[in-house]
């Protein structure tokens, strides 16, 4: 496996993870978390764990993002801190 792709994806994972906990807008945090999950899914697929990648794609990037967004929809978009 060419290491450049892995390196780019790993950098994206770190950037998206830091972004998801620092961004003020909760909707944005939810979307960043979904993107983070998708990058993790690609990373699992590269490492050969296809079943884990499938689960991550369906649960992490799919359903949990919907749950985050519907929770934000029913509460508030901004954070206090």
């Amino acid at each position: 496996m060419n290491w450049q792709i892995e390196f780019i994806i790993l950098t994206m994972v770190i950037i998206l993870g830091i972004g998801a906990i620092t961004v003020k807008d909760l909707l944005g945090a939810g979307i960043l978390f979904g993107a983070y999950s998708f990058m993790m899914c690609l990373l699992w697929a590269i490492m050969g764990a296809v079943d884990v990648a499938f689960t991550e794609a369906s649960v992490g990037a799919g359903v949990s993002t919907v749950f985050f967004i519907s929770a934000v929809f029913r509460t508030t978009r901004g954070t206090k801190d």
Partner: peptide
């Protein structure tokens, strides 16, 4: 092939959520 009950169940649930949205 990769997949199984857990992933399949989540996809059916996601389809239902798509319908609800």
């Amino acid at each position: 092939s990769p997949g199984g009950g857990f992933q399949g169940g989540v996809i059916i649930g996601a389809a239902m959520i798509l319908f609800a949205i």
